[in-house]
Design a protein around this nucleic acid. Structure first.
Lengths: 193, 193
DNA sequence: AAAAAAACTTAAGATAGATTAAGAATGAAG
DNA sequence: CTTCATTCTTAATCTATCTTAAGTTTTTTT
């Protein structure tokens, strides 16, 4: 079994007792995922929270011109899901796709709600998780509205060293909101300094 | 006293009992705020969560060229604070400023933590609040990386009708990440269609 | 190992958006 | 009610970024 990563992640926020751990593990299911496999596609309702044991995933939308726009990358010991679709039971506008083969744990909505109700610690755990994700998104919005593309690229490389050797520049360009060609120009520019 | 708005807001998520309501109200303090008054400035640690009874506020950063960039507007029955600074006890990089005179309620960090610990409902309430704010921020990031300035402006007007008569186009331009001059051009363009 | 697909780069020309500057209109404050 | 400050607009010029297209390199799949 590969539950240590998840338990450790939860425990880093607050101590869990036996009952809490066992309840969680009773609900969580392990899945092997192939490269290019989808965890979610547009139009589906997001019915699970996904915790990544191993692998690298992207969450993105496709615009009316067929272009992909990356909202998020996630790797080992991180959660990924379309929270909006999950909570409102509405069809997602997003895709979640594996960039590498990997292994995940998933928990169904009803089971998560059960945990929320019976063990307040889970409410708190996910509140803190979302708070942290929220803080990071705020920084990203500020960057988007105030920084140039070159500044956004440099900050991305500084803040995501673990991703650099795992994803292509095409993916990074899509994440910071520019074309791959322009990113190429930016990288050339940086080299010549 | 002006606590109805807050109680109502909380109750719309889940029923509160007497004890919970009283505990909350014991901690919450009312303040009158003048136009142009600051609730937070750069370098300060954000020590309160603020609930707006009446008024309109903006939260923004100032970049190294002295330019303002609006992260958020908030009005009646909404919360505003720098969650990052609040939770990590780190100096904020943001300003919160009143665009109109108004009235607010504030709760101190220690008191909020007390509520979290003693009444799980508050954990849940703030988890759901942050989740909703997070979902909206995700939409904004996707807009920033995939839509043109004109599309962002049009969506802003559609999604924030209540703000339109209260804030200037200068503020809107700063929020969607363009100059006021270019927004002027966009508005002219829209008229000529 | 070969074939196919995806990623990366370069460059020319096009467009979105910034900058500067100035004048007119609106709103705030004494 | 009047003065001062801010907002809004316009236009010319400049710059960042996109588009298209092509060629090269790297990675994935067979």
């Amino acid at each position: 079994m590969q539950f240590q990563g998840l338990i450790q992640h939860l425990s880093s926020f607050q101590k869990l007792n036996e009952t809490e751990i066992n309840s969680l593990l009773a609900f969580v299911k392990e899945r092997k995922i192939k490269r290019r496999q989808f965890l979610l596609t547009e139009g589906e309702i997001c019915k699970q929270y996904t915790f990544i044991i191993e692998g690298c995933f992207k969450m993105y939308k496709i615009d009316n011109k067929g272009q992909e726009h990356n909202l998020q990358f996630s790797i080992e010991n991180e959660w990924i899901s379309d929270i909006g679709s999950f909570h409102d039971n509405t069809p997602s506008g997003l895709y979640i796709e594996a960039l590498e083969k990997g292994t995940i744990l998933q928990i169904e909505k009803n089971d998560l709600l059960y945990l929320y109700t019976h063990f307040p610690k889970f409410d708190r755990y996910f509140r803190v998780l979302v708070e942290n994700a929220f803080i990071n998104l705020q920084k990203r919005v500020l960057q988007n509205i105030s920084d140039t593309a070159e500044e956004r690229y440099l900050k991305f490389t500084e803040e995501n060293p673990a991703l650099l050797n795992r994803i292509s520049n095409v993916q990074i360009a899509s994440y910071i909101g520019i074309t791959p060609e322009f990113l190429s120009k930016i990288r050339k520019n940086i080299l010549h300094k």
